[in-house]
Design a protein around this nucleic acid. Structure first.
Lengths: 212, 212
DNA sequence: GTCTATAAAGAGATAGAC
DNA sequence: GTCTATCTCTTTATAGAC
């Protein structure tokens, strides 16, 4: 990061502009998550960020650009969290542990961290086509993490050979992403949800006696 | 159904009004599925139904009412299809068969039947609160089918006792509903997707040697 | 940098002719 | 029953004061 002479003080000091910009982005993520892209009004975002709709345009060019940044942050954060969680495991850790760590980090991103990752899954299919296209490379990057994780595991004999990996990836990510639609704080915690999901994916739900 | 003297001909004959109304509903389901509730314009729906935006109001009071009927039809149809598929099985059919039939019927509703059920999952979280509340009883009715199916199976020892049933229901329905977001005709057919999902849920993905 | 005011466009909904 | 025209309201975006 380049040193910045700054407005009076030393370097490092956050400019007021950046703070406000961040507050607006946070608000946008929350509103997008709750109302979707077309349903989110700039006035909703401004209200939540304690400013006026017109003032947003000092920091952002358009609603589209706001969505684009929320999308990027959302996938980057969940990607980083999931990557960090799996890389923290010992080198030769079994697939079951890797899956468990990845699932738990992804669920946390959806349900208990900031709103960016949940907003991402909510609005990705609703934003204008050009925004979605510019977002595609980041999206694929995260998809590749899962593809690689599963491919390595199947190659190592840790996933049955007859399991279709794309279907498995969609089952897992679908179940995780859908949690945004139904989860409300109360019964199961995000960690418990992650644990239950991981166990079902690994072992299935049949009792020993019925396994085939 | 009451006999209707009709406009000239005998009873039974579909009135022109009903045909048009149905065409508009079909169009609305498709547009809602593709653009979400706030993103769908009445002009989009009118275009697809080969009529004018203003003409919709002869058949429907408002955009909300249109959404309400699409929601109702969507859940009723998938509910009926899933119910029929499971009831077609022999009386004491094992849980694996019941689950397989239910999953296949639900996936078909999402991916290859008309657009109503897919529209339902796309807009349910986006419609005005009062629409959602009026829809709730139908939604719960379908939810109860799955709750009962899983509860009976666990009571009969066909699902491990330590599986959390609400989590299992959300895993299954999440994976199935999310297919609306990623599926494109091409590689796997809806039937193959259903089969892969069912197998993973029942058996998990570990090879025999790694099972625990 | 942020505000207020307002322009410009788009959406749902209504009116009245046919 | 459907169309065209239009009303009204909302929303994104811009302009200019402070």
């Amino acid at each position: 990061m380049t040193v910045n002479a700054g407005p009076g003080k030393r370097e490092q000091r956050l400019r007021k502009s950046d703070v406000t910009r961040g507050r607006i982005l946070d608000a946008a993520a929350e509103v997008f998550r709750d109302k979707g892209y077309p349903g989110a009004r700039l006035s909703d975002i401004a209200d939540l960020a304690d400013t006026q709709a017109g003032s947003l345009y000092y920091h952002f060019d358009s609603k589209e650009q706001l969505a684009e940044e929320v999308l990027a942050i959302g996938v980057d954060r969940v990607s980083a969290a999931v990557g960090a969680a799996t890389e923290a495991l010992p080198a030769g850790a079994p697939f079951a542990d890797r899956l468990s760590a990845a699932v738990e980090a992804h669920v946390a991103g959806m349900l208990q961290n900031d709103a960016y990752s949940a907003a991402n899954v909510r609005i990705i299919s609703q934003v204008p086509i050009d925004v979605r296209e510019r977002h595609l490379s980041r999206h694929r990057h995260y998809g590749a993490f899962w593809r690689d994780l599963l491919a390595a595991a199947q190659a190592a004999g840790e996933i049955r050979a007859d399991v279709d990996l794309p279907a498995m990836r969609m089952l897992i990510l679908g179940a995780l992403n859908w949690s945004v639609e139904w989860y409300r704080p109360g019964r199961l915690t995000p960690q418990e949800i992650a644990r239950q999901f991981t166990e079902m994916i690994l072992r299935g739900i049949l009792p020993q006696s019925k396994r085939f």
